[in-house]
Simulated assay, not measured.
Amino acid sequence: MQRHKLKAAVLICAAASLATAIAPASASTRTRSPADVVIVDCFSHPQVRPNEFLIACGDGNSILTALRWSAWKPNFATGRGLNVVNDCRPFCAAGTFHSHPVTVRLDRSEPLKKHPHVRHYTQLHLVFTDSRPSGMPRMVTYRLWT
């Protein structure tokens, strides 16, 4: 009987650890009001002023971290943070992540397709303010998913 209790405790701890590990790291820093424009993450969760935002949903090799927002308006949002990028040398699984300071701008808000009463930013602009990933231009624009 004791052995079954031990197994159950181990399984519960493992499940809790797994749930924590797969929870989105880009949780919003404040509660969203109905009037807020959002940014939609890789898991289709709307967020306002996230601390982190995963750019490379497929492989996780590019993420914005330490985000500090100076403006979050209906037409645009601006802030600063770090773009943490895998150099993929000699290949991505063995690569090293490097942090690069960036300014961030979100714009082109549109209604969400599945929730037309909610507006979301559809473009992300990064400007590398110091170092930048090899081969990457100083300014980069990404079309965000809907």
Results as ranks from 00 to 15, higher is better:
V85A: 03
H45I: 08
S28R: 10
S33G: 07
V38G: 01
T96L: 13
S44A: 10
I63S: 09
S28W: 15
S28H: 08
F43C: 03
R68F: 06
F91E: 05
V84L: 14
L82Y: 13
S28N: 01
D59Q: 09
W69R: 00
T31E: 15
P50F: 14
A27G: 12
V48M: 12
K73Y: 11
P50N: 06
K73C: 05
V85E: 01
S26Y: 08
Q47K: 07
A35F: 07
P101H: 11
A27S: 06
P101V: 02
S26R: 06
I39M: 07
A93Y: 01
I63G: 04
A77M: 07
I39S: 04
R80I: 06
L64I: 14
A35M: 07
S99Y: 06
S62P: 00
R68D: 14
V84Y: 12
G60K: 07
R80K: 13
N86D: 04
N61H: 05
F53A: 06
L67I: 04
V40K: 05
N61T: 04
A27C: 00
N75M: 09
H100R: 12
G81M: 08
R32Y: 11
P90R: 11
P34T: 09
F97T: 10
G95C: 07
L54V: 01
G60Q: 03
D59R: 03
G95W: 01
L54T: 05
A93H: 02
A66G: 00
N75A: 05
